[in-house]
């Protein structure tokens, strides 16, 4: 009879009288180098399968959206129900410039950054005016309105079909080489975002974010300019999401509002954050890859996957109150856990 036990950082295997023990050093698991090298080797291993490479790229881009979103939810203490708005802003800016002005990906990038920043600045007063549910509802509506506009001005945005013929990110001659470089680029961008947000969360800015997420009034009373901090957080994170949109447009060469703006795309992103770890940064990364892979493998069961996929997500939401990451670090309660809160005192 084989018995496998997990006891205080050691794995015990009992096979009759035989007893095997392995000590698991926690920090080995926590060492980010392992995950990073896995991500770096994986594209080479699956380079023969174009669909898997594409999937990995997609998952990394999802991570690029989920990582800043986690910071945004903590730093503004508001639940954004429409992060895909900035995917749309970034993607359409890149796409329209790409096909009309003939700009390459590296020329569109600064313009995408500027346009996203302008949009973020325009919307950032919402983080001050709208509280709790109001903010969630308005952000829920914004991308849907943008979607309406893409239909309304089909002559510009190509509502139904999307923009196609956007210059590709890399042009190295062979298609498979392009895909692999694109994949590496998206992984690199996700890692960069992760690195930045991780650094921020560990610095004093992270402490401020935690304070604002926890109790805005007290934060203001102890001398933190909460309004400025919320606006800055909103702008930077929206900017990062906009860059993810830029990457999408240039990686696929097409960009359609129908794909990225509807609710189902938003729900996917939101669930990466929630199933991953309820606002935990590393949880969001795990969640992004998990949700992307889950969706891909479900497409195998035919068109019914449109029903099964949200169903599985709903079940996961029910059975994992702390998220996937919560399973791993249940006992370490001292460190700060951001909690996603929609309702504050208001309403």
């Amino acid at each position: 009879m084989v018995k496998l036990e997990h006891k205080k950082a050691r794995l015990v295997l009992r096979l009759g009288d035989l007893k095997l023990e392995w000590a698991i050093e926690r920090r080995y698991w926590r060492n980010p180098l392992i995950a990073v090298s896995c991500l770096l080797v994986l594209p080479l291993l699956i380079s023969g399968r174009a669909d898997l490479v594409s999937l990995l790229t997609m998952a990394s881009i999802y991570a690029c959206i989920a990582i800043p979103l986690t910071w945004q939810i903590t730093g503004t203490s508001r639940m954004n129900f429409g992060p895909q708005l900035f995917v749309g802003v970034g993607g359409f800016t890149a796409g329209l410039l790409g096909i009309h002005a003939g700009l390459g990906p590296w020329q569109t990038l600064p313009i995408v950054i500027l346009v996203s920043l302008a949009c973020a600045l325009l919307l950032s007063p919402l983080t001050i005016i709208a509280k709790g549910l109001y903010f969630s509802l308005i952000t829920l509506l914004l991308p849907l309105i943008f979607l309406e506009i893409t239909y309304y001005r089909s002559d510009i945005f190509r509502g139904e079909t999307g923009i196609s013929g956007i210059p590709h990110l890399f042009d190295l001659g062979s298609i498979s080489l392009n895909y692999i470089t694109g994949c590496y680029f998206s992984i690199a961008l996700a890692l960069l975002f992760l690195f930045i947000v991780d650094k921020v969360m560990r610095s004093r800015l992270g402490l401020y974010a935690a304070a604002i997420n926890d109790n805005e009034d007290v934060a203001n009373a102890v001398g933190l300019n909460t309004n400025r901090y919320k606006v800055v957080t909103f702008c930077i994170t929206s900017e990062m999401i906009g860059i993810a949109g830029w990457l999408m447009a240039h990686y696929y060469g097409t960009f359609a509002g129908v794909t990225y703006l509807p609710l189902i795309f938003m729900i996917k992103i939101l669930l990466m954050v929630m199933i991953g770890g309820r606002g935990q940064l590393y949880g969001a990364v795990v969640g992004a890859y998990f949700v992307a892979f889950l969706e891909y493998f479900l497409t195998g069961i035919g068109p019914v996957h449109y029903v099964v996929f949200p169903l599985i997500l709903l079940i996961l939401l029910f059975i994992l109150p702390e998220g996937l990451y919560g399973l791993y670090r249940k006992h370490r309660y001292r460190e700060y856990y951001p909690t996603i809160k929609v309702r504050r005192k208001e309403i």
Partner: peptide, 22 residues
């Protein structure tokens, strides 16, 4: 827990409409 409430309600709505569409 409103974040869970809102997300699950959205998911249920999506499931129903996708089922109708199917």
């Amino acid at each position: 827990k409103e974040e869970l409430l809102l997300t699950s309600l959205l998911l249920v709505a999506i499931i129903i409409e996708e089922a109708a569409n199917y």
